[in-house]
């Protein structure tokens, strides 16, 4: 019986700026950015739900723009800036979106959360005061099975208001419902 041998593929090496830090990483050349982040850089905050570009879970920011890390070849990211959920907080201070996602229950199981946070961050950088409809459109590439999205919209709106300098708080109805 012929033994099939895997060809030992040489590793590729690239330079990235990951969450602000210049990083060199070596990996099998056919790996996706998702795999390199999780397996070679230990950044498991980036999750995956299908690996086919059909759910948005693995979204990271590449040069500030949301991309599907499951469909981005890591080799193609050489020299680029990558931002993952691990890079959102400034030291121990959470990003306003992280604060509002935590407070409003916009993260339930938390699995899709990193993707939503990063898309929302990119949205607010481009459009600091998005309407509800603009938020829906921007987040239309991320599936969440827990929340029904409503708390996510409210969290984005609240964070947007705070980032604009308003002393905004969650509406009572958001936290307590109607009675």
């Amino acid at each position: 019986m012929a033994s099939r041998r895997r060809k030992p593929a040489g590793k590729a090496q690239i330079s990235l700026v990951v969450n602000g830090e210049p990083t060199e990483v070596a990996f099998s050349p056919h790996k996706t950015l998702l795999e390199v982040l999780r397996e070679d850089l230990g950044l498991t905050g980036t999750k995956h739900g299908c690996e086919l570009g059909e759910c948005g879970t693995c979204t990271v920011l590449l040069d500030g723009q949301p991309v599907l890390s499951c469909l981005a070849l890591a080799l193609a990211c050489d020299g680029k800036r990558v931002e993952t959920v691990e890079g959102m907080a400034r030291g121990a201070v959470l990003h306003p979106l992280q604060e509002t996602f935590a407070d409003l229950g916009a993260a339930q199981c938390g699995y899709c959360t990193p993707g939503f946070l990063l898309v929302a961050k990119a949205l607010l950088e481009e459009n600091p005061s998005p309407t509800r409809d603009q938020i829906k459109q921007a987040l239309a590439g991320n599936l969440c099975r827990c929340t029904g999205y409503l708390k996510i919209y409210e969290a984005v709106e609240l964070a947007a208001a705070r980032m604009q300098g308003e002393e905004a708080e969650a509406k009572e109805e958001t936290l307590y419902g109607r009675r």
């Binding site: 056919h30 996706t32 193609a76």
Partner: peptide, 12 residues
């Protein structure tokens, strides 16, 4: 995880 098969990647 669903992965890519090995291939050579060229960037002209």
């Amino acid at each position: 995880m669903l992965r890519l098969p090995p291939f050579t990647y060229l960037q002209p």
